[in-house]
Design a protein around this nucleic acid. Structure first.
Lengths: 196, 196
DNA sequence: CATCATAACAAACATTTGTTTACTAGCCAA
DNA sequence: TTGGCTAGTAAACAAATGTTTGTTATGATG
């Protein structure tokens, strides 16, 4: 059988799941409703009994995806641990979300451009909240003397977020290192750098 | 006038330039030949006097783009400077290429998936060469005792390349920091980390 | 049994897609 | 003036696009 029907899930969830996978692999504009229908195991028109439009499908996936990152990171960015420990925990939490489903992360990071004006603003806002969490910890660390005082805050945050946002490109859920271990190693690299 | 005709360039170069911009902004599958023709200021069919196909257009852009990164980094990765200095020079060179044209870099990093089987293998090969240059310097640095011995080589390289590959997403050629300064700051962050 | 909601089918729609073909206008060398 | 380039127009092609519509099978519930 060609269709992987996501046994036990509602048709709507099956569609969202399949769309997430295809949008991640082929991009939003590179995926047709016929592609999605084919992978679900249904005719194209049948999709519209469960979703409003192709763009609403994307909006749902992106909205939910960003929400997962925010929910995973917030408890740590707001904790009373040291900036070092907080940053490490945030990195590990981020990697856990990516590893849970790299395709979803690819959609969140790259396909939001194709949302309509309304949804795009909401996505950008939440993305800024996410960045702000990192800016906050780095700033705290610098003030506390735990992080280098000569850091360029903006560049440091973009460097860290860049390293994190690139992970769905290579991270495999089936690798031999667990997501926690990978997150820990990335946090090591970012916290202490490569120099001795 | 809506068309920016890239005065003084051959029609072929004008097309490549416009396609690069649009592929970067909207993606390969999100860009139609009519989009390109419109931006060049020409009718859709006219494009085919200068290019073989839409995919050949993408192949040209990606091939040339990867080549620029390789050409910019090779002299430094192969120099006889210290690993620290080599890595710093490679980062600065990378950022210079991105800053020169962020859209081109977006195409190189994200649109190669849409190449045909033949071109895709060539692109992956060159991309591996590029990674290898970074693996080499880090490995040298670790052996020389200049870089931390407890680094996970693979993770460190992916972290560094992630930070670098994400830059076209935010780097603006019109910012107040020069590309060299930005490269230097990123190199600082990656070499020494954020901790004191 | 009759009823009703769920889920899917079958077929069509208007548009947009990449590309081809035959033709024309302008220009520079012989 | 003739001839041959270079660059572009105009119109069409089959295929693929997102979506709508009317209809049908299948269960569970009254």
């Amino acid at each position: 059988m060609a269709e992987a029907n996501d046994q036990g899930a509602s048709p709507r969830e099956a569609i969202l799941d399949v769309a997430m996978q295809l949008f991640g692999k082929q991009g939003y504009t590179g995926t047709s409703m016929r592609d999605i229908a084919g992978a679900v195991g249904v005719l194209p028109g049948s999709l519209y009994a469960h979703i409003a439009s192709k763009e609403a499908l994307l909006a749902d996936i992106v909205e939910d995806g960003i929400g997962r990152f925010l929910a995973a990171v917030r408890p740590h960015s707001g904790s009373d641990a040291s900036p070092t420990d907080r940053l490490r925990a945030m990195v590990i939490a981020h990697i856990a979300i990516v590893a849970d489903n790299p395709e979803r992360s690819l959609v969140v990071f790259h396909q939001w451009r194709f949302l309509g004006e309304a949804n795009i603003q909401s996505a950008i806002g939440k993305r800024r909240d996410y960045e702000q969490a990192y800016i906050g910890v780095i700033d705290d660390g610098m003030r506390a003397g735990e992080f280098r005082a000569d850091l360029n805050l903006r560049i440091a945050v973009l460097t860290i977020l860049g390293a994190l946002n690139w992970t769905p490109e290579w991270l495999s859920p089936n690798g031999k290192l667990t997501p926690e271990m990978i997150g820990d190693l990335i946090a090591d690299t970012l916290l202490m750098g490569v120099r001795t």
